[in-house]
Design a protein around this nucleic acid. Structure first.
Lengths: 343, 343
DNA sequence: TTGTAAGCGTTATCAT
DNA sequence: ATGATAACGCTTACAA
C-alpha cells in the first residue's frame, strides 16, 4: 500500500509529504507559533503517516546539547547503588535526559577514561560518584566546561556542587546509639582509605568517642574496602588482635554483614557480647539474622536532587556551587538491641 | 600563556594549529594511511596541545552510527539485574559502546516509550529485558530497522535473537531436587502472569511433577509478582488454603525469601516441614538464614553474550536470528537439605 | 506566515 | 599525499 522505506525518514520527507518547507515543519515540531492551522494539520498527518522521529543527533549537533547525562559509579553490584541509580534514572527521564551508566570499580584510571568518554559523547553534564583521585594531576578536567555534580560524596578541593548525606553526623549517631546500649569499647571498620565517605564516617565515630570521654584505640580500627569480604577479614583481624571490644561500627552494611558472619563463625553472640551497627540500610540489613541496626539514607531522593541540580547547572542559571546535605536516620534492629542492659 | 578557550575545540582548530587541512587531520585520527610522518606528528602535537576531543555527535550524524546502545530492564532495584547490567556495561565498554539505562517497572507502556526514546536517540541497537507484547507493536517496530536482542527472556512472536538461560530445565531440576529430598506435595509461587520467564519456570515445575507421577494441584499454585511482598502474600494464601504441602518452588529468590519470612512468622520449620528452593542465586540467598537453595545462572555472562550478539547484528553480518541458551545450575543450601531423610 | 540558506563538526569524494 | 567541498539532519536568522 505505502512505499517501503529503508532509509530513515527525515524532516525533508515530512516536508515533501506535507507540501511545505522543512523550516515550517521544524517550527511546528518545536512548538513555535506562527504556523497556519491548516498546514499544521497537514504536517501532523505527514509525521503520523511516515512515523517520523526526529534525529536527535542532528538536533544535538545544531543546538549543542545532547540531552543526555553521564552517571559514574563504582559498582552497580554494590547494593547501595541500585536505589541511587533508580532515583537518577527516574528524575532524568522526567527532565527528558538519557542516562549513560558507567561502572568504574573505583579505579582512578577508569574514572578518567569514562570522563573523557562521556565528554566526547557530548553529555550535557556528569553525575559523579567516584573518588576523583585522578583530578590532581589532570589539567584536562579543569579546562573543559562541563557541569559536574558530585553524588553521595564531598571531595575536598573539587569545585563542584554535591548532593550527599551527613556522613559524619550519621556515624556519630550510630556510635552514640552503641554507647547508649552500654558499649564501652567500640571497634570500627572503615571503607577504602582514600574514600571521603569512609573518612567522614570515621570522623563521626571519633567525635562520638571524644564527646563521651572514651579513647579511640588504633587496634580497634580496621579497614574493610566496603566489601563483604573486607568486613569479614577486618573482623578476623580484630578478633585476632586480642583487644576486647563490645561494640562495632562498620562504615557500610556489606562490611557489617561480613563482620557478623565472622562473629557467628567464632561463636560470638550478637548483640549480647558485641553490638553491631552498619550504614546504608540496604535491603539485606532488614533480612539478615540478626537483623542489622544501621543508618538509613534517603538514597532515591539523593539521586533525584542531584539530577535537579545538574539540570539547573546545565541550564546555565544559578551556577552557584552548592552542597545539599540530607540527614541520615538510625534504624534500630536486633543487632544492637540490648534490652534494659545498661550498666 | 596559551589563549583561553571557551568554545570547545574542533577539528578546525587542530588543523589551523598544525597548519594542515581538516581532511588531513580527520584522516590521521581515523587511522587512514597516507599522512606524511612529519605532518602526522605536527597534528598529534596540536591535538595534545589543544586537548582536542572529537565531537561524537557530528561523527555519529555523518557516519550514521552513535556507538551507543539502549538497555531496557524492569527494575535495577531487583537484585537480579545489577549483575546483568554489569555484564552488559563491561562488554559494551569493551566494544566502545555507551549504555543508556532504562527502567520500566515492567510496564508495557513505559517499555514502548523507552523504545521510541532510544530510537530517537539514535542508539545503534537495543538490549531488551521487558515484557512488551511485540505482536501489538510489530508494525512500528518493523518499520524502524533497529537491531534488538532479547535479554533473559524469549518472547513468543518476537523475531529477535535472544540470550537467556534454560528456565524450564532449571525449574525442572529444582523440583527434582525437592522430590529427591522427599517432598511429595510441592507448592509453587510464580512471577507475573504474563512474564515468559515465569511461565517457563512454571512449565518446568509441571513437567517435573508429571515425570514423577505427581499431581499438580491448582490450590498449591500462587502468583507472586517476583517481589518479596508477593512471595510473602502468596505463602500467606498457601497456608490459608489449608491444603498441606511439604515443598515449595519459588520462581525467584526474592519471592522465596518472602515466603521463608512468612513461614517463619507462622512457626513452620524449614526445611524439616517445608523444603524451599528459589531461583536466581542472588547474593542474599547465600546469607539468608536458612541459606536458600536456588538455581544459579551465569548472569554476567548473559550480559556479555547479549552485547556480543547485538554488536554483531549492528555490524550487519550474521543477521541470523539465534537463541543462545545457557544452563542454570543447582546450588544446594540449607533451605532444602533434609539429610538422609528420604522416606 | 512562510521559505531560503547558512551553519553545527564531522567524514568522504573528488580533484590536484 | 593533500585540500576543497559536499553531505549528514536539524535549527534559525533573514528575506519575502
Amino acid at each position: 500500500m505505502e512505499e517501503e522505506r529503508t532509509k530513515p525518514v527525515t524532516i525533508k520527507d515530512v516536508a515533501r509529504e506535507a507540501g511545505v518547507s522543512i523550516a515550517t515543519v521544524s517550527r511546528l515540531l518545536n512548538g513555535l507559533d506562527g504556523v497556519a492551522p491548516e498546514r499544521a494539520q497537514r504536517i501532523r498527518d505527514a509525521v503520523e503517516k511516515l512515523h517520523y522521529q526526529p534525529n536527535s543527533m542532528a538536533r544535538a549537533l545544531k543546538i549543542r546539547e545532547s540531552r543526555s547525562i553521564g552517571l559514574i559509579i563504582p559498582d552497580i553490584e554494590n547494593p547501595f547503588f541500585p536505589a541511587l541509580v533508580r532515583g537518577v534514572e527516574d528524575a532524568a527521564q522526567l527532565h527528558g535526559y538519557a542516562v549513560i551508566l558507567c561502572n568504574t570499580d573505583g579505579k582512578p584510571t577508569r574514572e578518567e577514561e569514562y570522563m573523557k568518554f562521556l565528554y566526547q559523547k557530548q553529555v550535557d553534564g556528569i553525575l559523579f560518584a567516584g573518588n576523583l583521585d585522578f583530578a590532581e594531576n589532570s589539567h584536562w578536567l579543569s579546562t573543559i566546561q562541563l557541569p559536574i555534580v558530585l553524588l553521595d560524596r564531598r571531595i575536598p578541593g573539587a569545585p563542584y556542587s554535591a548532593v550527599l548525606s551527613a556522613n559524619e553526623d550519621g556515624a556519630y549517631l550510630a556510635v552514640q546509639h552503641l554507647i547508649a546500649q552500654g558499649c564501652r569499647q567500640i571497634a570500627v571498620i572503615g571503607g577504602r582509605a582514600r574514600s571521603p565517605v569512609s573518612n567522614e564516617r570515621l570522623q563521626g565515630y571519633r567525635q562520638a568517642l571524644i564527646d563521651n570521654k572514651m579513647e579511640a584505640d588504633e587496634m580497634l580500627c580496621k579497614e574493610g574496602n566496603f566489601s563483604f569480604e573486607g568486613g569479614y577479614q577486618a573482623m578476623e583481624s580484630l578478633l585476632a588482635g586480642g583487644k576486647p571490644f563490645d561494640g562495632l561500627f562498620a562504615a557500610n552494611d556489606m562490611m557489617a554483614i561480613g563482620a557478623l558472619q565472622c562473629l557467628e563463625r567464632h561463636g560470638r553472640k550478637v548483640p549480647e557480647e558485641i553490638a553491631v551497627v552498619g550504614y546504608d540500610d540496604i535491603q539485606m540489613a532488614a533480612w539478615y539474622k540478626p537483623a542489622l541496626t544501621t543508618m538509613g539514607q534517603p538514597v532515591y531522593e539523593m539521586g533525584r536532587l542531584a539530577v535537579a541540580k545538574l539540570v539547573e547547572e546545565i541550564g546555565g542559571k544559578n551556577v552557584v556551587r552548592q552542597e545539599q546535605i540530607l540527614q541520615p536516620h538510625l534504624v534500630v534492629r536486633q543487632s544492637s538491641l540490648r534490652k534494659g542492659q545498661e550498666r
